[in-house]
Computed example of a mutant assay.
Amino acid sequence: MTWIKKNKLITTLVLAFIVAVGVFLTFTLNKDEAVAKFNGESISKDELYNKMVEQYGSATVDQIISDKIIAAEAKKQKVTVSTSTLNAEIDKLKAQYGSDDAFNQALAGNNTTLANVKKDLKNYLILKKLMEPDIKITDGEMKSYFEENKDSFATAEQVKASHILVADEKTAKEIKQKLDNGEDFAELAKKYSTDEGTKDNGGELGYFSKGTMVTEFDNAAFSLPVNSISDPVKTEYGYHIIKVEAKKPAQAANYEESKAQIKDTLVDQKVDSQYQTWLDSKKKSYDVENTLSKEA
């Protein structure tokens, strides 16, 4: 998925930039007005716009044409992607980042939005459904992939925990006393925790493997029995009170249990490698012309 998502995101941003600059220049400048000057020599709006088209125009138009071919094929073959399927894939993406907060930070870091990612992902899922009937995955390929990537299919021991983070030991001990007196952990997290990413969810951290958290936190969480609450644990972030809710034992890699994931990964790889061939074959069915490409 990543390869096409990045490609589509880049071209979409470039196209949007070209269009935005074109609109800005059209409404704010006359044809010969300068957008900049160099040694007293004017750089006109036409020079700027033409340079942008020269650098990005042909590739951007090619991407637009590709999108239209995919859309036309999807309509012809009645291929759609349901909202539930799309949301499930978004949930998988979020899980890779560990939390909604980390996922949202990744979106911001890439100057994009959830709406853009959903649109891009939906286009990819449609393309995958169009191509998948012609993609063959053999048992031999799947077993080879499993053997070459066995470590990635093994599962380390995991703990499901919540925490309340505060700045000082005195406050942490007061909260622990409230918990010992029977007060609700989630409500106290919402009231006292300084972890903005988890406090509104009652301090919920979900499942994590050993080594994910800082050492002091890890040691405490993995040594606590299920349904128990720690005394205050000091880390570089402050004082934590940790509640362990469940544990999952480590599991060795299992081929049978991993087959669906392996097949999906191999399909993604073949969509990547066969995409251009598929696109070229479909393009023959349409009247397509990129005049910018001819000028290049």
Rank of each mutant, 00 (worst) to 15 (best):
L15N: 05
S42R: 15
I65H: 01
F27P: 06
W3S: 08
A36I: 10
L86N: 05
Y56W: 10
T28Q: 14
T28R: 15
Q55H: 07
A74F: 07
V14R: 06
S66C: 01
K5F: 12
V35Q: 05
T60V: 06
T85Y: 03
D67Q: 06
L93C: 09
A74I: 05
S58P: 05
E54H: 12
L29M: 11
V23H: 10
L29W: 10
E33P: 13
K8G: 01
V14N: 07
G57S: 02
A71Y: 01
F27R: 13
L25A: 08
L13K: 09
F17P: 00
K37L: 11
D62E: 05
L86F: 03
I65V: 04
G40I: 13
L15G: 08
S66T: 04
T11I: 02
T60P: 00
S82L: 02
E73H: 07
T2N: 13
I10L: 04
A72L: 12
K78Q: 12
T2F: 11
V61T: 02
K5D: 08
A71S: 10
L13M: 07
I64V: 03
M1C: 06
V14G: 02
N7I: 03
V35H: 04
D62Q: 00
Q63E: 06
I69N: 06
A20H: 04
K8S: 02
F38I: 14
K45V: 15
L15K: 06
V23K: 13
E73P: 07
T12R: 07
V35D: 01
A20N: 04
A34E: 15
D62M: 00
V19M: 01
A74G: 07
L29H: 15
V23Y: 14
V35W: 05
K92F: 05
K5M: 12
A59I: 00
A20C: 04
V79E: 07
G40A: 11
A20R: 03
N87R: 05
V35L: 05
I4T: 09
A59T: 00
L93M: 12
L13P: 00
T83Q: 14
Q55C: 01
N7R: 10
I43F: 15
D62W: 00
E54N: 14
I65L: 01
N30W: 09
E41R: 14
N87Y: 05
L25C: 09
A34I: 11
T85S: 12
K37R: 12
V21C: 06
V61I: 08
Q55M: 10
Q77S: 09
V23R: 14
K78G: 02
E73G: 06
I64G: 00
